[in-house]
Amino acid sequence: GAPPLPPYSAGGREVTMKKGDILTLLNSTNKDWWKVEVNDRQGFVPAAYVKKLDSGTGKELVLALYDYQEK
């Protein structure tokens, strides 16, 4: 199953993602919540729920390892 959710501390809205989604990583300075862009929406997802990909394009991409439903 998915890892436990860290307390929400990102101070911005969250976004929903599905397992297998490829998201653009915008900011990973917060260790628990990373800012991503998905379907032209920006928001935060739990860092433990995604994995960085080596895209080779200069853009940082992450793979959704679990479904996440915004609150």
Rank of each mutant, 00 (worst) to 15 (best):
E70A: 15
Q42H: 09
A48S: 13
N30M: 08
P46V: 02
K59F: 10
N27C: 09
E14D: 13
F44N: 03
K52D: 04
N39T: 08
L65K: 03
K51D: 07
S9T: 11
M17T: 02
S28H: 08
S28L: 04
Q42I: 15
P7K: 10
Y66V: 05
E70Y: 08
E60N: 15
K18T: 09
E37Q: 12
L25D: 00
W33C: 04
A2R: 07
G12K: 07
Y68G: 00
Y68H: 05
V45C: 04
D67H: 04
R13W: 08
K59V: 14
P3F: 05
D54S: 13
Y49K: 04
K35T: 11
Q42P: 07
T57R: 10
K52F: 09
R41W: 06
G58Y: 11
R13A: 15
G43R: 03
K18A: 07
V36Q: 00
T16E: 08
S28N: 08
L26Y: 03
A10H: 15
L26T: 04
G11P: 15
D40M: 13
A64S: 05
L23G: 10
K51V: 13
F44R: 02
Q69S: 14
N27T: 07
N30T: 04
V15S: 03
G11C: 14
L53K: 03
A10T: 13
E14H: 15
A64R: 00
P6W: 02
E14S: 15
L61K: 09
Y8G: 10
T16A: 11
L25Q: 01
L5P: 10
A10E: 06
K19Y: 04
K18G: 04
W33E: 00
L26V: 12
Q42G: 07
K18R: 14
A47T: 03
N30H: 11
E37L: 06
V38L: 15
L23W: 02
E70G: 15
L25Y: 02
T57F: 09
L5S: 07
L5C: 07
K18M: 09
K52Y: 08
A2T: 12
G11N: 13
K52P: 09
D32H: 13
N39E: 15
P46C: 03
G12M: 12
A48W: 06
P3I: 06
N27K: 06
V15L: 15
D54V: 13
N39G: 15
T57V: 13
K71V: 13
S28R: 07
L25S: 01
D32Q: 07
D67I: 02
Y66F: 09
Q69F: 15
K51C: 11
D40V: 06
A47E: 03
L23D: 00
T57E: 14
D54L: 12
T16Q: 09
V45Y: 01
